[in-house]
Design a protein around this nucleic acid. Structure first.
Length: 108
RNA sequence: AAGGGCUUGGAGGUGGCCGCUCGGGAGUAAAAUCCUUAGAGAGGAAAGUCCGGGCUUCAUAAGGUUCCGUAACGGAUAACGUCCGUCGUCUCGCCUAUGGCGGGAUAGGAAUAGUGCCACAGAGACGAGUCCUGUCCAGAAAUGGGCGGGGGUGAAACGAGGUAAACUCUACGGGAAGCAAGAGCAAAUAUGUUCCGCAUAUAAGGCUAAACCUGGCCGAUGUUUGCACGCAUCAUUUCCUCAUGAGGUGGUGCGUUCUUGGCGGAACGGGUAGCUCGCAAAGAGCUUCGCAGUAAUGUGUAAGCCAAGAUGAAUGGCCAUCCGACGCUUGUAAAGGCGUUGAACAGAACCCGGCUUAUUCCAAGCCCCGAUAU
RNA sequence: GCAGGAGUAGCUCAGUGGUAGAGCGUCACGUUGCCAACGUGAAAGUCGCGAGUUCGACCCUCGUCUCCUGCU
C-alpha cells in the first residue's frame, strides 16, 4: 500500500527555484516538468490561477498527487516539479493521468 | 392545472480496496516514523470584499476648517447603507372607474438662503423682452410705450419654472489599522555607508491614522580615549624661582571645543523569512413549542441539536450495489433488459450578521392570477 | 487579508451632461511599367455589461465583469 508522506513533497520556495533553474525540462501540451537532483524522491506541483478557479486547481493537484502515489517507481530520485499550463483545466481526470504518464516517460 | 412571485430544506445512500488532514495511542530531547477495531472532515453562496460588528494593537484619539457617509415617518438589532411596518411617488392589471382593489418598483430631507446649467427648436429658458392680436396713450405717419389675450416650439413658457445621483444648505454620524492584527521562541547577518541630533521634559525625527492649522503626545535617562584651554583641589621630602607663602610643575576632578566611540533618528545597503500561540466544541449559536408583537424580532427554571481547522495549503481515487434521472430496447399490458449519468455555480483560511453576484436538479409550503389547457 | 488604477475604431490614446474624435493601420481611387512613398476619398464604435437620476448620459450614481499594480 503506497503512502504519500509530507517528506515526499517539495515545500520550500528555494527548492522550486532550483528546479526551474535546472536544465532538465520536459513539455507536453498541458503540462511541463522540471527536474533537479537530490537524494530523495520528491514531487512539487504548481498550478497558477490562470489555469482555472480554485476548485479546478485543487482537482488537478489531487489527481497528480494520486498518480504519484500509485506510480512512484516511474519517478526518478530527486525533485520533480510539475506545472500545469493554461489548458489543463479543461481535461478530465483520466486525461490528466495519461498525459502525466507520457510526461514522466519522456525523461527515460 | 399551466403561468408569475416568495420562503424553507436537501446536494445521492450502503459496502469494499487504497490514500490525505485533524484527533487518539505508541515513539522521540524535539522531530521523523508506526498503529488507529472506534471518532471528525467544504458551501448556499465557502465567491465578490460592498456594508456592519466581535477580537487585537497603537504615541488617547482634543479643538477648528475642509473631507467622507447616511437621509420620508416609526420600529427591530450588538451594529448596519440590513430587516419589518406605515405613508408618499411612479408604473402595470382589473373593476361597479374624478374612485377603489391587487401586483411590482422606489437613493423618498430642502428649489421660499445663494450660485451654476437648461443644447436643438422657439419671439423669449428666468436676465429680460415682444411673434401674432385686442385696446389705451403719444405721434401727421412710420413707429414707440402701457395693459390684456393667443397660436406655435419645447421636458419645461413667466408660475415663488425644472435640475441638489450640479455646487450648496440642513440634520445626524465618522480614531485608525487589520489575524500579513498581535504574543512568544529560534535562526541569520555587517557595532555596514552617508547625513542629522545628544537634553531636563527636550533634539533629530515621528505620532495625532483622508488633508491642513492650533494644541497635545512619543522620542537618547548620558559618556571612553587623546589633545588644548579654563576653574577647583591635593602634593611639593624629591625639580626650578622668590621666600614661612605664592608662581611654575605634577596628580585628581569639573567645564568648553574638536576627534574617536556610544546612544537616538532619516535614507541606502546586507541578512533571516522557520516554529508555537492567536486558532477550532459553546455562542450577539440553531430548531421546535409556549408567551408578547401586524411584522422584523424579543422572551423562557421548556425540550432538542451542535465537535472541519489546512498552511506549496487536507476533505480524494477506483469498484460493486441500491435509488433517482435520461436514452435505446423486449412486451398487448403488467413488468423487465442494456447503456449513460449522479449534475449547475463552485473549495473554508480569525469568527459572526447582512448585501450583491453565479447557479442545476429534487422536495415542501405560502401568495397572486381565475378557466385561456383538459 | 488590505489598498489603488484602467476598460472609447484592428492598435495607441483624446473627449465641459447636448451630432463620438485624432494618429497609425485597413480598403478604394489617382500617380507608376510594377512596388514604396505621396495625394484624394471611404469604411470601421451595442463608448466592457446591467440598472437608475436627468428632457437628454462616454461623462453623474449604484451594481457587475475583465485586466493591471502595490502592501509583511
Amino acid at each position: 500500500m503506497p503512502k504519500f508522506l509530507k517528506s515526499e513533497k517539495v515545500l520550500k520556495k528555494s527548492d522550486f527555484a532550483l528546479a526551474y533553474k535546472a536544465q532538465e525540462k520536459y513539455f507536453t501540451k498541458n503540462f511541463f516538468m522540471a527536474f533537479s537532483g537530490g537524494d530523495k524522491r520528491r514531487i512539487g506541483i504548481t498550478v497558477s490561477c490562470k489555469v482555472g478557479k480554485a476548485f479546478v486547481r485543487n482537482r488537478i493537484k489531487r489527481v497528480i498527487r494520486e498518480f504519484f502515489r500509485l506510480n512512484k517507481e516511474l519517478f526518478f530520485i530527486g525533485d520533480t516539479v510539475i506545472t500545469a499550463r493554461t489548458g489543463a483545466g479543461l481535461l478530465d481526470n483520466a486525461e490528466i493521468r495519461s498525459e502525466i504518464q507520457a510526461l514522466v516517460q519522456k525523461k527515460r
